[in-house]
Simulated scan of single mutants.
Amino acid sequence: MTFTPTADRLIPDLTPAQQIVLLARTLWREGYNDHLAGHITYNLGDGTLLCNPWLLTWEEIRPRDIIRIDLDGNVVDGDWPVPLGIPLHLELHSARPDVQVAVHNHPTYGTVWSDLVEVPPMFDQSSSLGGGELVLVHEYDGGVNSREAAAKAISAIGGGELALLAGHGVFVLGSSVRAVHQRAVALETRCRNAWMVRAAGGRSDTPLPPWYIEQAVAGKGDKFIGFWEASVREELRAAPELLDDPGISHS
């Protein structure tokens, strides 16, 4: 008998708000944990976005804390303020309506490479999961709470799916929460492992062949069923009551 994995057999159905909360909490475990920093947006396709609120860390938010905002950054539903750096996401979703989910934060190793203003080599398979083109935004034009600085960053990213923002942090984009989760984990793995190789005085070139890297970059991030789901199950074991709260409803 052949077992064909499907997402609905691995985790319960999740509302968009629950997905954001689980994405935030699982990525916190992966190093996306710079105190109050970081924003996750989920494009509802109706001119509004779901977003984590300001003033709560990613490890403590619950579905009821998720807010809904319009593309001008005004709160439509919810009781919390909008994160300070939300213009980055507003500019992104205005320019690229194809992006459903976007994550910005300052993970340790991704931020190191953004500080170096360098793209880390892809040394191993785990660093390549999720696919997507990694773009380096060379100039620091100020915090992305500035609409002007945010617009410049989005223009520099172009059609990329992952970005290192010089002197700032990372930006990870995708067509689903699963895709963004896998890309975000792989990006921090890539940045960490490349830093370790450099610190050990190791090679500067990657052992991965060009055909493999080309194939990896072309990946959509949502084909590896089980990766996101395993992280969700881990989080639900730690906080099973999360699914008792579906979060705000939308029409």
Rank of each mutant, 00 (worst) to 15 (best):
I66H: 02
S176P: 02
S114H: 08
G158C: 05
T6P: 04
H104A: 08
G142A: 07
V135Q: 12
L243W: 00
V177W: 00
L27Q: 03
I154Y: 02
E161V: 01
L56D: 00
L55C: 13
D141Q: 10
Q182C: 06
F3R: 13
V117D: 15
E229T: 09
V21A: 03
I225E: 10
L173C: 02
G158H: 06
V197E: 11
H138R: 15
I11V: 14
G110L: 03
D141L: 08
D245F: 00
N43C: 07
P87S: 11
L173W: 00
Q125V: 11
C191H: 00
V170D: 00
D79V: 07
G38F: 02
D13Y: 13
E91R: 15
D13E: 15
T26E: 04
R203S: 15
S126A: 10
W80C: 05
I67N: 03
S114R: 03
A186Y: 01
D34C: 04
R96S: 11
G143K: 09
D8L: 09
L208F: 06
I154N: 11
S126F: 09
Y109P: 04
F3C: 14
L129F: 08
T48M: 08
D79P: 07
L22A: 04
A179F: 00
L236K: 05
D77Y: 05
G130M: 05
I213G: 08
D124F: 10
C51L: 10
Y109H: 14
R68T: 08
G201V: 13
L56K: 01
S249D: 14
A239L: 09
A200G: 13
L243A: 03
R192C: 08
V101S: 06
L129N: 06
G169T: 05
A238K: 10
H93R: 07
R25C: 00
S155P: 05
L92E: 14
D77L: 06
S128M: 12
P246M: 03
V112T: 15
T15E: 09
V170E: 00
D77P: 04
H93F: 06
V112E: 10
I40S: 04
K152L: 12
S204N: 14
E59K: 04
D65P: 02
A150H: 08
P53F: 00
I86R: 04
I20D: 00
P97H: 08
L129Q: 10
F3G: 12
E59D: 15
A102I: 13
C191N: 06
S176A: 01
A156N: 10
A37Y: 03
M1I: 09
V170L: 03
L162W: 01
E91P: 05
P16I: 11
A95M: 13
G158L: 11
A7F: 04
F171N: 03
V135I: 15
R192A: 09
D124V: 07
N52K: 07
S126M: 06
S127I: 01
L14K: 07
Q182S: 03
E148A: 13
